[in-house]
Design a protein around this nucleic acid. Sequence first.
DNA 1: TATGAATGAGGCTTCATTCAT
DNA 2: AATGAATGAAGCCTCATTCAT
Lengths: 209, 209, 209, 209
Amino acid sequence: MDKAKQKVQQFKQREQAILDTALELLIEHGEDRVTVEQIAAKVDIGKGTIYKHFTSKTEIYIRLLFDYEHQLKADIEQAIIDAEGGDYSAPARVYFGKRMSDPVQARLFQRLEERMVANGEERDKLGELDDLRQAALEQLNKSFAKRIEEGRLIKDVPPYYYYLAYWALTHGTVELYHNHSFQDLVADKPDFIKFILDLGVHMGVKSPS
Amino acid sequence: MDKAKQKVQQFKQREQAILDTALELLIEHGEDRVTVEQIAAKVDIGKGTIYKHFTSKTEIYIRLLFDYEHQLKADIEQAIIDAEGGDYSAPARVYFGKRMSDPVQARLFQRLEERMVANGEERDKLGELDDLRQAALEQLNKSFAKRIEEGRLIKDVPPYYYYLAYWALTHGTVELYHNHSFQDLVADKPDFIKFILDLGVHMGVKSPS
Amino acid sequence: MDKAKQKVQQFKQREQAILDTALELLIEHGEDRVTVEQIAAKVDIGKGTIYKHFTSKTEIYIRLLFDYEHQLKADIEQAIIDAEGGDYSAPARVYFGKRMSDPVQARLFQRLEERMVANGEERDKLGELDDLRQAALEQLNKSFAKRIEEGRLIKDVPPYYYYLAYWALTHGTVELYHNHSFQDLVADKPDFIKFILDLGVHMGVKSPS
Amino acid sequence: MDKAKQKVQQFKQREQAILDTALELLIEHGEDRVTVEQIAAKVDIGKGTIYKHFTSKTEIYIRLLFDYEHQLKADIEQAIIDAEGGDYSAPARVYFGKRMSDPVQARLFQRLEERMVANGEERDKLGELDDLRQAALEQLNKSFAKRIEEGRLIKDVPPYYYYLAYWALTHGTVELYHNHSFQDLVADKPDFIKFILDLGVHMGVKSPS
DNA sequence: TATGAATGAGGCTTCATTCAT
DNA sequence: AATGAATGAAGCCTCATTCAT
């Protein structure tokens, strides 16, 4: 019964199609303003079909959030391995570089999550998300701590101040991308991103005396 | 006849009350989740009355946006005058210092505006907002250009990269404050803010050779 | 401003209209199968208007339940006063007679309540309903206890067995009314009701030895 | 060829499993709140399979109704034979005793039937159900008529008044069991049931003069 | 001018039934 | 015969806006 397998395959594909379409629509229209009907229409399936795959609209979003975070985590781990032997700034560079590589998604997911927290939805799941991130952050923390120890960074702030600053810089850049006032301003975008990442890496670096 | 004046006065006051209340509620509950009914109830007027002052809910928001931007502009201009004779970083410091002095509002207005852009609402008005900001930004631009000229900053990037970076850092910090994952992390907040602002000011500063 | 009063009056009347209509529809179609839209259509108002008066469909039902129970309570108290000096069976007779005077409603409300209990809705309110009934039941209880004391009833059962039996008899009769198999069976319904009530009053009466 | 028989056998067993499971779920969750999907899941078959055995959900219920009524009829007939030579109250005792032996089912079926009548579904089938019951009722009728003739019961009511009263008492008791207000009241349920049945049997019995 | 009752489009979710494999 | 994915009608509820007084 190869047919059976094919069916399962198809079902999974459709699930992915729903997720992909939801993401597209979210990016195109914003966190609100996407309806279940829209998704269904774009995937070209019935409204009810969506509820065969997900128990609620919220669950679609949760799923998107997890998929994103997992992907990110895998990418980062791989990148850190690739950068083995690189300087101490490599983890930070990779972590934030990845997040900034698709600023639109970065921000979307940030907001999606925020909205759920605000609505008190799916607290457990959101907790899991947090845990996922903690691993990566701890690694960053160590990296910064090491640099402080070696005297490369100003010493009198907790190490995590650095990655928070880095986080802020990258997420702020993401916001910048969405600010229509700056749409035309950042003409050469990759160049600007490079600039920002460099800034970040050098943030708080002590001037060699 | 004095009555007439009083009435006009009252009318204006009420309008302000609507705006103030709307802002309070927006901050308390978020960009969505504020209804016209809530505003009316909190101002203690009828829902219909709101539509005597504003043609739509959107208009209230537009008005809030303008008032904020105007206030900011005035504050900044004043602060720059006050800082006359200060170092070249003064304008940037003032501009971003102001925006960050109330991060919650900064973010709220950012999102309010964004939402309108997304909805294609009131394009003309939003254009005017842009113009308002341009003035301040040009000034910043000059300030950074001057510093580059004087060799204090890395030269091979356009000057506005600096204020964009600054913008990003400040807005990112605002986001950081709203991110539930970091709620507990930034225990001593004023300290962290100081750290961030310092970072910003020193961003891209050439190491004295 | 007589107009204002009139408006309030009208509003109240509409609220009553919603309740009345809901009740009519419930009786006509059953506890399920009544939709908010149906009610709105029959009252000839918009769907949304209903939510100006009640926060949910459930609240309409709760309200119906309370109105019924209050009315019943008042009627019973009045009837007991009227029957002052009557024999000891008066309270029971009145209590159950009232409930059976409109068997259709009696059963409807029974089921409405049951459904809410099953759904776990509005537990507090349902508790209040219980309290309302307790007063009447305690009175009945005393009445039966007195008759037992006086040796008119079989002594070796708790007094409340009697009113439970009475309750069962009346409610069972109500069910009987709704059983389509018996629709045509009882030619002279008032006569039958009288028979039942007599039975009830004499239930468990000791044969004079 | 034996395989074929086995298959037929299995098909029948599955049908019974569907019925049994449906009944279990109905009792557990109530007349509404049982879905075809639930039934299928609990029987551990596909949803579509159910529609190979029954043309609709309603048909399952109809079938349940018939099976119950047939079983009851058989039980009663047997019981009456067993009680041969017993007193005249035996048929009533048996008839109502049986119905009350499982009050939960008694009520469930009452409501299931009622719902179908309300929906105008399967009128023919419901008519057949009626006929089924008529036989038993006529027997009861005769029994009561006999007792009236013999002067044991008050004479001036039609004989069927008695079994209707009995019916009401038993069904009312069932309702009582489901009424949350009385949940805690009846401590010793078997005792109370005995009380009720006794009451029923003595209802309307003339006091020996 | 001020009011707030009325409206209805629009959003989410459930579930009996169908149908291709 | 068995399956279960797909469907869409139907139900509840929210809220910006209108309009008669």
